[in-house]
Design a protein around this nucleic acid. Structure first.
Lengths: 342, 342
DNA sequence: CGTTAGCACTCGATGGCGTTGAGTGCTAAC
DNA sequence: GTTAGCACTCAACGCCATCGAGTGCTAACG
């Protein structure tokens, strides 16, 4: 059996309705809806077909139909009509985004808030992978006897720091000098290529070998552990509790637990290079706790070589349409703001 | 009517029981409990008295009694027996705390996790007020034409940064030089006193007046807005949903909303100078959404002049005993770790 | 006089039961 | 191919009786 034009229209109407109400949709409801001029009985026949094809399901015999995962997939791939944001709305979002533009982290936090406010779902933003960022500046600052703070400034003014041990007897001026050397040699290297650059450096700097060795280790550790908790920012975690699918406290709790595990989130938000919006529906995402959620992600650019991810997590019956528009817009906006510092 | 020894004992037994079960406590339960050798009838009489005195309340006629806010106050002030953590437990907490000791923010995040894991409530840690920290180092790094990143390293290796505009034609070396001057002049100043130091500096540096002016403004703005969202770290926000008092989704939602508003939290965690553990029960704290929560806070030291706050938010029937022990221990542990970098 | 056993009373929680109504599938007529 | 009609299903709702934990009161007890 093939889907004809009418089946598409009916399926779309059902999904639209279910997205709004979260209640199983009956044949009468669809029949009444403008645009589909058929009686409930006809609709029922079609619904029965759609159920057999796996697009619809019935919670129980005498209830209406609920779209299946397969239906959502079809919906986002073919059926959905895209809506544009009003320019008024764009403006407000952009304005809010700029309100804390003095620091990169502030911008990202604002963006997460804008996303969750605009969609009423939960937003997640992941900073670009460290390995893809380029070093702008390295600075060692003494903080105590035999202890220094290493600060690495990268693309777009993203700052990373770590405490390292230094050999005895180095004063502020020594560290200053070493910082200059480090900066000179490492500037414009991607963090990922820093091992080689460092190796070269070590050859020529016998007396500070130990210090440089430690610095290298710290940077590498940072790279392989792939970012810390502050690289994943969540907004609107309370929003999901608005929806009836989370009126069960246990579901809500397991959802919130996932939001607290930044590692899981980072993995969940991983995506291939493309700038396109990507949609993962229900069982398509790996984490079992989120099997009745959908995750929509987009990318933003930082500098020339790095991209980060911004996304929305909501129930499978989310308003994909709006979420896509918002993410698309915010991805561009965020890229713009962050590449100002490029 | 005065509280005699027996009333104290009974009240304590009731509160202990209620903290464990969250169910109204009946006279039989207390009578059965070892240590109080009286019949249910006697207990009932006493309970009736305690109710009249405002320490107990009945949800409805044929239910047991529930402790009132006043009872908890009495409990934490006089009745509660303090328990010690096992040395095993201390060790595990300390170990976990050290696992990410390379960065200050990492340590604080770990601490928040340790707190929420050890208590099963929600933890909040607030970084020290910016104004009380001392400047260690100032560094300007070029990030684009006419744009620089100003990095301020303070006590204990806490790093703050902001993007600032700089006059045209300044290259990396110029900024380097200016950074040296700034660091020299501002080192060991408390951030709060920086205005005066800056004013002095401006007198002698005619040609870079505009740049320095902007830098000053940025620092001051940071000071008066009193910290950004990353200064307030929350752990275990999902924990509270374990408790029956939050099985109502609406309550849960409003609670989570408070956790998202970092400003409210910072205000909520404000406390006077003392290092003592402080307890605010139910209506004692200002935010109406948290009127059936208790907030227990302690301080940790950063360097010589600054303190931050760590705390636990839980239901009024929280296990005060344990929470206090954990906070007390973690306050010290956190101070130790952070003053290593002093 | 404080303590306690006994007892009637209260009231939320629980579970069975009939009713209601939204929705279905099937059939026959258009 | 479409639709009106109809019997059927089943969760949701409200009603009611039952149950039991807990109370307050009174009278008896040491």
């Amino acid at each position: 059996m093939q889907l004809d034009e009418r089946k598409y229209r009916i399926l779309q109407a059902i999904i639209d309705d279910y997205i709004m109400t979260a209640m199983p949709v009956g044949s009468r409801t669809i029949s009444r809806k403008s645009g589909v001029g058929f009686s409930p009985a006809t609709i029922r026949n079609e619904m029965s077909d759609l159920e057999e094809l796996g697009y619809l399901a019935q919670p129980h015999t005498s209830a209406g139909r609920v779209p299946s995962y397969k239906a959502y997939r079809l919906y986002v791939d073919h059926l959905m009509k895209t809506c544009k944001l009003t320019s008024d709305e764009r403006e407000r979002m952009h304005e809010h985004l700029m309100s804390r533009s003095k620091q990169v982290e502030g911008v990202i936090r604002s963006a997460a808030n804008v996303l969750s406010d605009a969609t009423k779902y939960t937003s997640v933003i992941v900073a670009p992978k460290l390995g893809t960022l380029r070093i702008k500046h390295v600075q060692l600052v003494p903080v105590a006897e035999r202890t220094a703070l290493m600060i690495i400034v990268t693309t777009a003014g993203i700052v990373k720091d770590a405490v390292i041990r230094v050999p005895e007897g180095l004063d502020a001026d020594d560290l200053y000098g070493i910082s200059r050397i480090l900066t000179q040699r490492l500037a414009d290297q991607p963090l990922a290529g820093v091992r080689q650059a460092f190796a070269d450096l070590l050859k020529n700097a016998e007396q500070n070998r130990k210090l440089l060795g430690e610095a290298l280790q710290v940077i590498e550790k940072r790279l392989e552990q792939g970012g810390d908790a502050s690289d994943v920012i969540v907004g609107g975690s309370a929003n999901l509790l608005e929806y009836p699918e989370y009126s069960d406290v246990n579901k809500a709790r397991s959802f919130l637990s996932v939001l607290e595990s930044k590692d899981t989130l980072r993995q969940l938000m991983g995506r291939e290079g493309s700038m396109e919006v990507s949609i993962r529906i229900g069982p398509e995402n790996q984490v079992p706790e989120l099997n009745d959620c959908s995750i929509v992600t987009a990318s933003y650019r930082v500098g020339d070589h790095s991209t980060g991810t911004l996304g929305i997590i909501g129930p499978t019956r989310m308003n994909y349409n709006r979420v896509i528009s918002v993410l698309d817009f915010m991805g561009r906006a965020l890229s713009d703001v962050l590449s100002e510092y490029k």
